[in-house]
């Protein structure tokens, strides 16, 4: 047996209720360093609610989530004070929104968007930050000559690349992604998925990716959680869940995919 590093995130019976309505119910799992977890299900299944809880954007009704922080050691993210939680989000996490407008500051240039996390973390050396920004724009395959353009002058796919660079430049250990390729054309989506796949492998990132697209799940995720009406109905290795689905709902999801 190989010795395994302790989990980066331990999620223990997380539930979120909106009054009488269930968002997610009793969700538990471990996420290991370097592991990509896909959360799949239809809209309304609770996958985004779960992601928002785990990323500290939404207070759960009950449950715990212990994150192995560089700064604090193991901490329950729901027990952290507001300030510490924000610092954790800034220093050790990234969050890629489906809509780049939710993750970018639209009034400042693309380059400033990418550099900002470094400044927030106390970066003061202009030349180094400029260099890091240029490196990252190259990594996400953006034209460096457009570094000073505002995000609104970029296409949707390019905005998403800026958002990805902004969320990875500070070398987070955990990245949350909510339908990262959701609003894009198919050809742009494929290139972006390749890029993401390469980056997570190269940087040994851990990630939780919410998607309703089984193709995205197969390409990106090591492991899947299938959600329905707030419950996790099935978990397992990605190829096992997709090729030998056990739960009726998963079988329905998989059999509904159009084949090309």
């Amino acid at each position: 047996m190989t010795t395994q590093a302790p989990p980066l995130l331990r999620v223990n019976r997380v539930s979120k209720w909106f009054g009488e309505i269930v968002g997610c119910r009793n969700v538990s799992f471990d996420l290991h360093p370097g592991e990509i977890l896909g959360v799949v299900g239809e809209s309304g299944s609770g996958k985004t609610t779960l992601l928002r809880c785990l990323s500290g954007k939404l207070e759960p009704t009950s449950g715990g989530a212990e994150f192995l922080s560089k700064r604090h050691g193991p901490v329950d993210i729901f027990q952290l004070g507001e300030q510490d939680r924000r610092r954790l989000q800034r220093e050790e996490w990234g969050f890629v929104h489906q809509n780049p407008r939710d993750g970018l500051r639209m009034r400042v240039s693309g380059g400033a968007n990418v550099a900002e996390p470094l400044m927030n973390l106390g970066g003061r050396h202009y030349g180094q930050m400029r260099q890091a920004t240029t490196d990252w724009l190259e990594r996400v395959e953006l034209d460096i000559s457009r570094v000073d353009h505002k995000p609104r002058n970029f296409s949707g796919g390019m905005q998403q690349r800026i958002q990805i660079a902004r969320n990875l430049i500070h070398q987070p250990r955990l990245v949350f992604m909510d339908e990262p390729t959701g609003g894009l054309d198919v050809s742009v989506q494929a290139r972006l998925l390749d890029l993401l796949r390469e980056l997570v492998r190269d940087l040994q990132l851990s990630a939780i990716i919410v998607t309703h697209d089984m193709g995205v799940a197969r390409l990106m995720a090591d492991r899947l959680l299938v959600m329905k009406n707030g419950d996790v109905v099935e978990t397992g290795l990605t190829d096992q869940v997709l090729d030998d689905a056990q739960h009726p709902y998963t079988q329905l999801l998989v059999s509904s995919v159009l084949q090309l």
Binding site: G236, L237, D239, Q240, D243, D244, Q246
Partner: peptide
Amino acid sequence: RCVYGNYL
């Protein structure tokens, strides 16, 4: 596929 862990 069972031996590979692709099928349960």
